[in-house]
């Protein structure tokens, strides 16, 4: 009784502050250990909030479409009303059709790309982005119900996007390759030099553990090595933009520009089941090409 009095009457605010910070620390600890309870609770809350996000994205797309469609018709206000209305109607129809053609073209590319993969892939739509500038992630409109699990590779016809980081029944969060916590096993296509692609923030990555002796140059393309398990071999990651051998040590520094423009990301493919190449191919030595 005395302890309760002490805690909840004399030092109520202080107790709440300590309890809140302790809860946050416990949550951090549980997340590090990937406890199921926290994952379930996170998924549940995401499921509640994501529909709002989805609706908002839908509204933005619609508003943007209408805005873009009508923007250059402003000058026509001087012309007579009938002609303006007629033109506006035609323009809207035209924009809608163009949008449809663009959508179809994008989806066709995605479908063609999906058919080229020796794995089962799920197409998903981007419905939200990371609320902070520090971390780089996007929210997808597909989740556990569609078979998406943590760690699955996410790609687009342009190249590698990232990996599934969190899942909820019908939504999931993708950690982009530009995030500081992202790391993907890769090879330089021209020289077959091995390295790890790490996120470097705003639309930028860096190559880690790239041996100084390896021949790499600006403009070299970097692809997935197929060794990290989730990513099929040979998917485009990006192009080397900077090489620096000035420092000390056995490694050299290289910067990479991702092949995908993450600011315009709309649809992606989640690789559900990746079938690695047969063992005899794995054993073959890869000849260096220059």
């Amino acid at each position: 009784m005395r302890i309760r009095d002490f805690l909840f009457r004399r030092y109520t605010v202080l107790t709440v502050v300590i309890l809140l910070l302790l809860s946050a620390l416990i949550l951090i600890s549980l997340r590090v250990k990937e406890r199921k309870g926290v994952v379930f609770f996170d998924g549940l809350l995401m499921e509640i909030c994501s529909p709002f996000q989805k609706t908002s994205t839908f509204v933005i797309k619609k508003v943007r479409g209408v805005f873009q469609g009508y923007l250059f018709l402003v000058d026509l206000h001087r012309e007579n009303e009938t002609l303006k209305k007629r033109m506006a109607d035609l323009q809207r129809e035209n924009d809608q059709m163009r949008e449809m053609v663009q959508n179809q073209e994008r989806l066709r590319k995605l479908l063609q790309f999906k058919e080229t993969l020796s794995s089962t892939a799920i197409a998903a739509e981007v419905v939200g982005r990371d609320p902070s500038s520090w971390f780089k992630s996007v929210t997808l409109n597909k989740g556990e119900k569609e078979g998406i699990r943590k760690g699955m590779a996410v790609i687009s016809p342009g190249g590698v996007i990232g990996q599934i980081f969190k899942t909820a029944p019908s939504h999931s969060v993708v950690l982009l390759i530009t995030d500081y916590n992202s790391a993907i096993d890769s090879i330089v296509r021209r020289t077959r030099a091995k390295a790890i692609v790490e996120g470097g923030g705003e639309n930028r990555c860096q190559l880690k553990y790239l041996l100084r002796a390896e021949d790499v140059a600006q403009g070299d393309r970097v692809v997935t090595s197929g060794l990290s398990g989730n990513f099929p071999k040979g998917l485009m990651i990006g192009e080397i933009t900077k090489v620096d051998k000035k420092g000390h040590g056995i490694f050299q520094y290289a910067e990479l520009a991702p092949s995908v423009d993450f600011t315009r990301l709309e649809e992606v493919l989640v690789i559900k089941e990746y079938l690695p190449p047969p063992p005899e191919e794995k054993g073959k030595k890869v000849k260096k090409t220059r």
């Binding site: 946050a24 997340r31 990371d130 609320p131 971390f135 992630s137 969060v173 995030d179």
Partner: peptide
């Protein structure tokens, strides 16, 4: 929940 931060730092 909607961030790429895996630890829950904002909480």
């Amino acid at each position: 929940l909607f961030s790429g931060n895996g630890f829950g730092l904002y909480a």
